[in-house]
Design a protein around this nucleic acid. Structure first.
Length: 266
DNA sequence: GTCCATGTTCTTTA
DNA sequence: CTAAAGAACATGGA
């Protein structure tokens, strides 16, 4: 569920409800969802005030009033919501924080690909630059170093942060670039168009509240609307929005990849 | 029963 | 050593 636009939407809806709140106590901390294993989360969170909720890459970063930080990664099926304390607890709830004001911050993740990561004062480690502020020269320098397919390179979080399977396909479609072209062989003009397409599709998706294919909801429980505007993702066999040629689906790097064979020539 | 899924990380292969 | 490909993780829906 969560690529950059979905994570940004969770942060945008969560921050007004959670920033400034005090964590009274932590309930339901599923230990094997917490990294590192020995981080005593209940102890470290109790009675701390949340000073901010921000996004970095696909991570939702909480900063506390002692300057320590932790982040939540939604994995594939994670939901991070603010709920009334008396709302029924969903299956696969791995973290519940009681906040002052009476509401709870809840993290639900059936597949458990997500995580709760205690950072302390550490930084984020190996994550690439944010695509919304990335300049084309920088993108070119990043791509020139790898001979992988451009689609695969876009999914590498150490190269560029935040792009996942949906928005990689959508950005390549908007840029008119075939997903199997080698990253290092893109021309300066290709990279320019790609950089613009990435920003355009991410901004549009954020404005639409993200893509809800299946599980994704924002912090208030609302679904996104951008799935209705996907041009190629999950549209195999359907007509291309530009030229009516059926969208093709191939597998690249183990991931479904959708593109228009006419608008995105080899 | 089968296949597939918005992600990351570890292992294997070259 | 590096880069790239593939498997693994866990659950549920079609």
């Amino acid at each position: 569920m969560p690529e950059l636009p979905e994570v940004q939407t969770v942060v945008d809806t969560l921050a007004p409800l959670a920033a400034g709140r005090k964590i009274l106590c932590a309930l339901h901390v599923r230990a094997d969802m917490v990294q590192p294993n020995d981080a005593d989360l209940p102890q470290r969170l109790a009675q701390r005030r949340i000073t901010s909720v921000q996004r970095r890459a696909k991570r939702i970063v909480f900063t506390l009033d002692d300057r320590a930080r932790f982040f939540i990664h939604l994995g594939m099926t994670g939901q991070l919501t603010i709920d009334p304390a008396d709302a029924p607890l969903k299956n696969h709830t791995h973290l519940v924080l009681n906040l002052d004001g009476g509401k709870q911050l809840r993290f639900v993740d059936p597949r458990r690909f997500g995580a709760i990561v205690w950072m302390g004062l550490a930084d984020h480690g190996r994550v690439g630059p944010e695509p919304l502020t990335l300049r084309p020269e920088r993108l070119k320098r990043l791509l020139i170093r790898t001979s992988r397919a451009i689609k695969t390179a876009l999914l590498d979080q150490t190269l560029i942060a935040g792009i996942g399977n949906i928005y990689a396909d959508e950005a390549l479609f908007l840029a008119g670039i075939h997903p199997e072209r080698r990253a290092c062989e893109l021309t300066a003009a290709d990279v320019m168009r790609l950089n613009r397409a990435i920003k355009l599709v991410l901004r549009r998706a954020i404005r639409a509240g993200g893509s809800s294919i299946r599980d994704y909801v924002d912090a208030t429980g609302a679904r996104g609307r951008f799935q209705e505007r996907h041009r190629v993702y999950d549209r195999a066999g359907k007509p291309c929005a530009k030229c009516k040629t059926p969208v093709r689906r191939i597998v690249l790097g183990g991931r479904s990849t959708h593109f228009c064979p006419v608008c995105q020539p080899e």
